[in-house]
Amino acid sequence: MSASVSTISDAIQAALATVNDPEIRRPITELGMVRAATVGDDGVVRVELLLTVAGCPLKDKLRADITAAVGGVPGVAGVEIEFGVMSPEQRQELQSKLRGGGGAEPVIPFAQPGSRTRVYAVASGKGGVGKSSVTVNLAAALAARGLSVGVVDADIYGHSVPRMLGAEGAPTRVEDMIMPPQAHGVKVISIGMFTPGNAAVVWRGPMLHRALQQFLADVYWGDLDVLLLDLPPGTGDIAISVAQLLPNAEILVVTTPQTAAAEVAERAGAIALQTHQRVVGVIENMSWMELPDGSRMEVFGAGGGQAVADSLSRTIGAQVPLLGQIPLDTRVREGGDAGLPIVLAQPDAAAAQAMGAVADRLAVRRESLLGKPLGLKPAGR
């Protein structure tokens, strides 16, 4: 082979290495997806690409990304792509590569001692306080700040996160590993992605626990900075399962200013006493409505969020701050219905600004103590 062809081949490989798999977000060359890449005498590059599964929903994006990357190499006259499918052995090898071990039982990475992912369990005492709206907007805001974010729609019976986040794709399976769809830079998984149409989920506690376990262990999340769990209202099976599966999860309590809602929210936060989890703070949603004349209408009363924060601080014996007050805005609902969170659609809106401020307070990656000297010395006798 001449030196010039060798140089072009090297450049083609380098170009292919810049193309990431849209679901795994790692280079296709690193994942073993490029079976061959040859350049003919006519300058046309022929790439043989192995998809993880037949009928990959992101096949067209891969074609476009590879064509753009390889087509930009000097001396390349055209790009032809032939798609194949990985064999079961190749998929197993890919799964082992992604999980960092061979054939080991799936584990929950966020529960491991060295995990640097901050896990926030978004809880509420009762339904209708806007917990899911807060969750998806916080996720979108954190992703917009450059963090790697995932959301588990743990509200199995009342799942709504995929629609509110605009995640329309279906999960892809690689052997027994699940690739979560993404929207606005946020990875998301929900039971709604596995049920036909708008079918109801009628499960008892053990099945709920197993579903949550699979969402955490079988889904390939990658290296997340933040994982948000949208919990169902109350202190039932899922809240208990989260405490068991993710003992390091921090509880984020959502309430409205209404006294009745605040009293119930206190019970949702007080579960931390029994599960030994940290309550990171309280968010008061629908705090007021701003009127055209600049005044505020407190539709649901006032003071509920601060009351919950003060009560939890006394009950737990540690400071629980009121992280923010989110004004009532119809555009929050509109954004949820359209799959475009208000923090992205209307970033200057008061509700978006308030949720962005809460995101700033939560955007801190956990520092791992694994392998770090703590500077401790044994006490002398």
Results as ranks from 00 to 15, higher is better:
L49M: 13
G72R: 13
P57W: 02
T67S: 10
L51R: 07
E48F: 01
I28M: 03
L62E: 00
V44R: 06
G43W: 12
L50V: 02
K61N: 05
C56Q: 06
V47M: 05
G32Q: 11
R46D: 09
P27D: 00
E80S: 10
A69D: 07
V53R: 07
A54S: 12
I28P: 00
L58A: 12
T52A: 07
A36I: 10
E89K: 13
R25Q: 15
L62Y: 00
E23K: 01
G72D: 11
A54N: 08
P27T: 01
V45R: 06
I28W: 00
V53Q: 05
G72H: 10
V34H: 03
D60F: 02
D60A: 10
K59R: 15
K61E: 06
D60T: 05
M86N: 11
V39Q: 15
V79K: 01
A36C: 08
D60G: 04
G75H: 12
G78C: 10
I66S: 04
D65L: 03
A36Q: 13
V45C: 10
T38R: 15
R46Y: 08
R26T: 05
G55S: 13
A54P: 02
R35T: 08
M33F: 05
P27L: 01
M33C: 07
V34A: 04
V53E: 04
L31C: 01
P74H: 12
C56H: 05
T52N: 05
V76I: 13
E30D: 06
R46A: 12
E80M: 07
V53A: 11
D41H: 13
D65Q: 08
L62C: 02
E30T: 07
V85Y: 12
Q90P: 09
A54L: 12
G43T: 14
L49Q: 03
V45D: 04
L62I: 04
A68T: 13
A69Y: 03
V47N: 02
G71Y: 07
E48S: 10
R26P: 03
M86Q: 13
G72S: 09
D65W: 02
G75T: 08
G32F: 08
I81W: 06
K61C: 00
V85L: 14
L51A: 08
E48G: 12
P27Q: 02
G43N: 13
P27F: 00
T38P: 05
L51H: 05
E89A: 15
V39R: 15
V39Y: 14
T67L: 02
P74C: 08
E30V: 04
G84I: 15
G78S: 10
M33E: 03
R25A: 12
V44H: 03
E82A: 14
V79Y: 02
G75C: 09
A37T: 05
G55A: 14
L31H: 02
V47Y: 03
